[in-house]
């Protein structure tokens, strides 16, 4: 069954992203890993809709994509306030 193979590949990448989220030295590495995890979840939901023959999962995938995007932006906004401010370079 092809969908099982694809779902397994996506799950492996989600595990790798989780490893990066645990290892990642800086906050931004962790945010990157969580963003990756979220987009992979969207793909996994889309594949599972076909694997299990339940098309309602596509609605979940779309909702998850929206929430993931907003969540990443919110977390970035939070960390931007915590981070030390650096002057924008004038001429590079």
């Amino acid at each position: 069954m092809i969908f099982v193979v694809v779902a397994a590949a996506i799950a492996v990448t989600m595990a790798l992203a989780l490893a990066r989220a645990i290892l990642g030295p800086s906050h931004y590495d962790r945010i990157l890993a969580v963003n990756m995890f979220g987009t992979k979840t969207v793909l996994l939901l889309a594949v599972m809709a076909f694997m299990m023959g339940r098309p309602d999962f596509l609605d979940l995938a779309l909702a998850y994509a929206l929430i993931n995007f907003i969540g990443i932006l919110a977390v970035l906004e939070f960390f931007r306030d915590k981070a030390p401010k650096v002057e924008r370079p004038k001429d590079v």
Binding site: A9, T13, R20
Partner: peptide, 17 residues
């Protein structure tokens, strides 16, 4: 398409690590 996509997904995960 699905197999190629899975391969690229795994490659991206390995690269991120």
């Amino acid at each position: 398409l699905l197999i190629t996509g899975s391969a690229f997904v795994v490659i991206g995960g390995i690269g991120a690590l």
